[in-house]
Simulated assay, not measured.
Amino acid sequence: MATTHDRPAVPAQSAASVIRLLAVRDTPLSLDEVFAAVGDRAAGGTALFVGTVRDHDGGAEVAGLGYSAHPSAEAELRRVAEKVAADFPVRAMAAVHRVGDLSVGDLAVVVAVSCAHRAEAFAACRRLIDDLKHEVPIWKHQQFADGTEEWVGAC
């Protein structure tokens, strides 16, 4: 039985070569586009995260929401992605975030990472979405069914 030690090493790639798709856009997002972007023959694991607009937040019914991005959002997204690529053995990576008005059920963000092994793919994908939410200047404006609204910091 082969062990981890018996596996041949997969050559490291530069951050520029593993980042296959990064975008902040005002058009609907595609799971197929993101999944296709991270396809890699050396990857045995691909992790994909999809963030959707839910129908409630904090006990209040959400009627809709809008996302706004600072002009530096794509550059910050690239910085976050490059850091993840430097910290994990990533084969391919993609991240897209929607801006503009969205309805309940719409895709707001899709990120995917492929690595040689599943544990690495899960960990890198989690870091990518968590860092995107905390560091990329994209803000959410929620409108609630009762007529109230709120702005949420970096999404």
Rank of each mutant, 00 (worst) to 15 (best):
D26P: 01
T27S: 14
T27V: 15
P28A: 04
P28D: 08
L29I: 08
L29H: 08
L29Y: 00
L29Q: 01
L29F: 05
L29R: 04
L29N: 00
S30P: 07
S30L: 02
D32E: 11
D32L: 04
E33C: 00
V34R: 02
F35V: 14
A36K: 06
A36T: 13
G39D: 14
D40L: 03
R41Y: 01
R41Q: 09
R41E: 10
R41N: 01
A42C: 01
A42N: 05
A42G: 10
G44C: 12
G44R: 01
T46C: 10
A47G: 07
A47P: 10
L48K: 02
G51M: 08
T52P: 04
R54L: 09
D55L: 08
D55P: 09
D55F: 08
D55K: 03
G58S: 13
G59I: 04
G59A: 12
A60L: 14
A60T: 14
V62Q: 08
G64C: 15
G64F: 00
L65H: 07
L65D: 05
L65C: 09
G66R: 13
G66P: 00
Y67I: 05
Y67A: 03
S68R: 14
A69H: 06
P71A: 12
P71G: 07
S72W: 00
A73N: 06
E74V: 10
E74A: 12
L77P: 09
L77Q: 09
V80M: 00
V80W: 00
K83E: 14
K83V: 12
A86L: 06
D87I: 03
F88E: 06
P89L: 13
V90L: 10
R91Q: 11
A92V: 09
M93G: 13
M93Y: 09
M93N: 04
M93L: 15
A95F: 01
V96M: 07
H97K: 09
R98L: 03
G100F: 03
D101I: 05
V104Q: 08
V104A: 00
D106Y: 03
L107T: 11
A108G: 14
V110H: 11
V110K: 05
V110C: 08
V111A: 09
A112E: 02
S114G: 04
S114M: 01
S114Q: 10
C115R: 08
C115V: 11
A116E: 12
H117K: 08
H117N: 12
R118M: 10
A119N: 13
A119H: 15
A119I: 08
A119M: 07
A119D: 14
A119K: 04
E120S: 07
E120Y: 01
A123D: 15
A123K: 10
A123Q: 11
C125D: 12
C125T: 02
I129N: 07
I129F: 07
D130L: 00
L132T: 14
K133M: 04
H134A: 15
E135D: 13
P137F: 01
I138D: 00
I138R: 01
I138S: 06
W139R: 11
H141S: 12
